[in-house]
Design a protein around this nucleic acid. Structure first.
Lengths: 259, 259
DNA sequence: GCTGCTATGTGCGTTGCCGGACAGACGGCA
DNA sequence: TGCCGTCTGTCCGGCAACGCACATAGCAGC
């Protein structure tokens, strides 16, 4: 089933380090196996370890009213889990839950902090990652507000496929509903629509992506936007236009007019 | 009308700097007047100036599909606008629009970068601010998903009141609709509901908050949560519980079980 | 094979918001 | 004073998603 599995199973952030620094960093890392469904941090937990997934994927979750939960970010081999440490914090600001089982590099907080000081390329690299994460959160907020469940589901499946590096992965509709913050039946409807169009196939806790291109066409544009942000950062390439519906309603000139 | 106006009209982030550093920073700042409706950055713009509002407030906006826009963050005297620079970036990742007219300290990018290197307290302070911003984005995503317009409107009004430091401020329903990503009529309904309960009073482009406590009770809990995050960061105090509706659906143990 | 658990599918009325259209009200300006 | 642009209020049908309840289907263990 895992047809798209890659040869190299490392983490892209760490790969981006200069070889010397990377070696020093890896010397203090342990390769661990994350179990699907395990909670890495509860909101407000003191962070003990940071994680750099290689095959696994982790969901960042925000909760309101003690029961409604929404996935606001996804971390795979392109990222890291425990971003608060990058910014000098001690506590996890969001719940982190292993969504796709698999391997991840792990380092304890103290060691990680030491590397942040001693490896000159590390902090800038991770700062850049934080800014990407920040943009992803903003995009998810808008996406969740404006896009229908079916398109959001398609986006989620594509994002997960990228991180699982496989066409097929284990997930129940109940879990998907939890991630997208909708009813399970909402997922049933959306998923069966996608299946009837032969974009995906699913059965009892497992989903296979059949046609990636058409699934991408069925997803909202947020998927592609996210990819662009990861690839090019926030340069002009990832620009999305956007104008106020009624410019007249805004007093004053549009550009900065401060003295 | 502006009964709650404070004597000190400075910026809280800059106030938190040690006196010596603050003085050096202010020496290179200009106090400018932001005009309501002016766009400080378009998404993807190279950042030329950063802003530290004192009386003004700025909205950070995310756009999807070239027309649907959502306010994902608000910056007032408690924050700064141009966070990308803190993380070493050059480009604005979100649109920034002056929502409440007023004064702000401004510095150009080059000078700001120099201060980041030379003033030892600045970078840690702003890093902490970024992590707060990040948490605010996540909260907004969940809030936008789960809370009805009336509660979101109440939250928005409270947040704006805090930043305007006045009970009354100028804003049209059209603009509110734009911020919350809903129809103008949706605001009409919500606002007249709040007005009928004597929590606010409004007339033609201006809103007055009549009863702050009851308005807070009418707002979603996200308002209070935000305040806690600003006050205490992500320590245990700001913890919000949250459990999966059906724990059974998650395979494996709940705590981290990696080797 | 049967049992029992979990995952998926369907039906029903309800609700919050949408899109569009239009009527009324306010307030600056001539 | 009266005009006119802007802001606000009300109506309509429609739809996506909700909450609840119950029916079916896959799969594991005995």
């Amino acid at each position: 089933m895992s047809t798209r599995r890659c040869a190299t199973s490392s983490n892209r952030l760490l790969d981006a380090l200069p070889a010397k620094e990377r070696d020093r960093f890896f010397a203090d890392c342990t390769l661990v196996d994350l179990v699907a469904g395990s909670v890495l941090y509860e909101q407000g937990d003191r962070i003990r370890y940071v994680y750099f997934p290689t095959e696994s994927s982790i969901s960042m979750l925000a909760t309101v009213d003690d029961h409604s939960t929404l996935e606001v970010g996804m971390v795979g081999r392109e990222g890291m889990c425990g971003h608060a440490l990058i910014l000098g914090g001690d506590f996890a600001s969001l719940r982190a839950l292993t969504q796709g089982a698999g391997a991840a590099w792990r380092t304890d907080t103290t060691t990680f902090r030491r590397h942040l000081e001693n490896l000159p390329a590390l902090q800038p690299l991770l700062d850049r990652y934080v800014s990407i994460l920040l943009r992803q959160l903003a995009q998810t907020a808008a996406c969740t507000r404006f896009h229908v469940v079916e398109k959001r589901l398609a986006r989620w499946l594509l994002m997960t496929q990228d991180r699982a590096q496989a066409d097929s992965f284990d997930v129940t509709q109940e879990f998907l509903a939890f991630m997208l913050g909708v009813r399970r039946v909402g997922i049933t409807t959306a998923a069966s629509s996608l299946q009837s169009r032969k974009l995906i196939h699913y059965r009892r806790g497992s989903i296979t992506i059949l046609n990636r291109d058409r699934l991408e066409a069925a997803a909202c544009t947020c998927y592609r936007f996210d990819l662009e942000v990861y690839r090019h950062g926030m340069t002009a390439r990832a620009r999305g236009p956007g104008s106020f519906r009624h410019q007249r309603a805004l007093a004053g000139p549009i550009r900065t007019t401060d003295a």
